Amino acid sequence: PTIVLKVSPEELKALEKAGVEIEKIEKNEDGELYITLTPEALKKAGFE
């Protein structure tokens, strides 16, 4: 199962800087950012 999270541009930068593997980055028509994370990326980021 993949996880989709709504993030701010600042959060996205912080995640990328931390080396979190982001599978997909999407922006909706309201300009909101959503990222898709794999279970492996979540484990690496410390989420179980």
Rank of each mutant, 00 (worst) to 15 (best):
G19W: 03
A18K: 14
G46F: 04
G46M: 04
E32Q: 13
Y34K: 04
E16D: 05
I35T: 01
A41H: 02
G46L: 05
E10Y: 14
I3E: 02
E32S: 15
G19I: 01
I3P: 01
E29F: 10
I25S: 03
K44T: 05
N28C: 11
T2H: 14
E29W: 11
E11T: 15
A14M: 14
G46C: 11
A45Q: 02
V7R: 01
F47K: 08
L37V: 14
V7E: 00
E32C: 13
P9F: 06
E32K: 10
T38F: 03
E40A: 10
E48S: 04
G31W: 03
I22E: 00
E10L: 15
A41P: 01
T38S: 05
I3W: 14
E16L: 14
A14C: 15
L42F: 15
L5E: 01
E21S: 07
V20P: 00
E11W: 14
E10N: 10
K13W: 14
T38H: 05
I3A: 05
E40W: 03
I25V: 09
E11G: 10
S8H: 06
K24A: 11
Y34H: 05
D30T: 12
K43D: 08
E21D: 09
F47L: 15
E29T: 09
I25G: 01
K13I: 10
D30E: 11
L37G: 01
E40G: 04
E29I: 10
E10G: 09
V4W: 08
A41D: 05
I22N: 01
Y34F: 11
K24W: 10
L12T: 00
V20L: 09
K13P: 01
L33I: 13
A14W: 15
E40R: 04
L33T: 11
G31T: 02
V4Q: 06
S8P: 01
E40C: 14
P39M: 15
L33P: 01
L15Q: 00
I35R: 00
P9H: 09
G31D: 06
K17G: 08
V7F: 02
A18F: 11
F47Y: 06
L12G: 01
G19Y: 04
G31S: 04
L33N: 02
L5S: 01
V4P: 02
L42W: 15
L37F: 06
V20A: 08
K6T: 04
V7C: 04
L5C: 07
N28Q: 09
E16A: 10
A18V: 05
I25M: 07
K43Y: 10
E48T: 06
K44R: 04
E26M: 08
K24Q: 08
K43I: 10
K27Q: 11
G19S: 05
K6S: 05
I3K: 06
A45S: 08
E21Y: 09
A14Q: 13
E21C: 05
G31P: 01
E29A: 12
K24D: 04
K6V: 05
N28G: 11
E40F: 04
K27R: 12
V4H: 04
S8Q: 05
P39Q: 14
Y34C: 05
A41Q: 12
K27A: 08
P1R: 13
E11V: 15
L15P: 00
K6G: 02
E10P: 04
L15W: 13
V20E: 00
A18R: 15
S8N: 07
E23F: 15
A45I: 07
K44H: 06
P9C: 08
L33R: 01
E48R: 02
K17F: 11
L12R: 01
T38P: 02
T2W: 15
L5Y: 13
A18P: 00
N28R: 12
L33F: 10
S8F: 03
P39L: 15
L15V: 03
I35G: 00
K6M: 09
I22M: 07
A41T: 04
T2M: 15
L37A: 09
G31F: 02
L15Y: 13
E26A: 08
L12P: 00
E48H: 04
A14G: 07
A45R: 03
P1Q: 13
A14E: 11
T36I: 07
I3D: 01
I25P: 01
I3V: 13
L5V: 05
K44A: 08
L42H: 10
K17V: 11
E26W: 15
L42R: 04
T2K: 08
I25F: 06
E23R: 08
E10M: 14
K43S: 13
K6Y: 10
V4S: 05
E11Y: 15
P1N: 11
L15N: 00
K24C: 10
K17S: 11
G31C: 06
V20H: 01
E23P: 03
E11M: 15
A14R: 15
D30W: 14
K24M: 08
E23K: 07
K13F: 14
V7Q: 01
G46R: 06
E23S: 09
K24H: 10
P9Q: 09
A14N: 05
K44D: 13
E40V: 04
G46Q: 06
I22Y: 09
P39Y: 15
V7G: 01
P1W: 15
L37T: 14
P1F: 15
I22H: 02
L5P: 00
E16W: 15
F47N: 05
V20D: 00
E29D: 11
K27T: 13
T38G: 05
E23V: 09
F47W: 11
D30L: 11
T2L: 14
I3F: 09
V7T: 03
E23C: 11
P1Y: 15
P9V: 08
E40S: 06
L33D: 01
P1G: 14
G19R: 07
L37M: 10
P1C: 15
P39R: 15
L37Q: 00
A14S: 09
E48A: 06
L33C: 06
I25K: 05
V20C: 06
K27S: 12
G19T: 02
E26P: 01
K6I: 05
L42G: 03
I25E: 02
T2I: 12
E21F: 10
F47S: 05
Y34M: 07
K13R: 12
K27Y: 13
D30F: 13
A18Q: 11
I25D: 01
D30N: 13
A14P: 00
I25L: 08
E16P: 00
K17E: 09
D30S: 12
L5F: 13
F47D: 06
F47I: 14
E48W: 05
L15T: 01
G31R: 02
N28K: 11
T2R: 14
I35A: 04
K27C: 14
L37C: 04
L37W: 02
E11A: 14
A45E: 03
E29S: 12
T2C: 14
G46S: 02
T36F: 14
K27D: 05
K43L: 11
V4E: 03
Y34A: 03
I35E: 00
A41M: 12
P1S: 10
I3H: 09
I22D: 00
Y34R: 07
K44E: 08
A45C: 09
E21W: 13
F47P: 03
K24R: 12
N28V: 05
T36L: 07
T38Y: 02
E48D: 12
E10F: 15
I25A: 04
E40Y: 05
L15G: 00
K43V: 08
P9Y: 07
G19M: 06
K27W: 12
E10W: 15
N28I: 05
E23A: 09
L15M: 09
K24E: 05
E21I: 07
I35F: 01
A18S: 08
G46D: 08
A45D: 03
T36A: 04
E16V: 13
Y34N: 04
L5T: 02
G46H: 04
V4K: 11
E26S: 10
E48Q: 04
E11D: 11
L5G: 00
I3Q: 07
L33V: 14
T2G: 08
D30R: 14
L12D: 00
N28F: 07
V4N: 03
E32L: 12
E10T: 12
E23G: 07
P9K: 13
K17A: 11
E16F: 15
E48N: 05
P9N: 06
L37K: 00
E26Q: 09
E26G: 05
K13V: 11
K43Q: 09
P9W: 09
V20S: 02
D30V: 13
P9R: 14
K44M: 08
T36E: 06
P39K: 14
N28L: 11
L5D: 00
G19A: 05
E23W: 15
E32F: 14
L15R: 00
P39I: 15
V7M: 08
A14F: 14
L15F: 07
I3G: 02
T36K: 04
P39T: 13
A45H: 05
E26I: 09
K44N: 10
E32P: 03
K13Y: 15
L37P: 00
P9I: 09
G31Y: 03
F47G: 06
P1K: 13
A41V: 02
D30C: 15
I3T: 11
L33Q: 03
I22Q: 00
V7K: 01
E16G: 06
A45K: 03
E11P: 00
E21P: 09
S8T: 10
I35P: 00
N28P: 02
K17R: 13
K44Q: 07
A41I: 02
G19K: 07
K17P: 00
K6N: 04
F47M: 13
D30Q: 13
S8R: 11
A41C: 03
L33H: 04
E29V: 12
E16K: 14
L37H: 00
P39N: 11
G31H: 03
K13S: 10
E21L: 07
L42A: 15
L5H: 02
I25C: 07
D30H: 12
G46K: 04
V20N: 01
T36Y: 14
I35V: 12
E26L: 08
T36V: 06
G19C: 06
S8D: 03
T2S: 13
G19P: 01
P1V: 12
E11S: 09
K13N: 10
V20I: 14
K13H: 11
E32A: 13
P1A: 12
I35L: 06
K24P: 01
L15H: 01
K43P: 02
K27M: 11
T38W: 02
N28A: 10
E32T: 15
K6W: 13
A41E: 13
I35C: 03
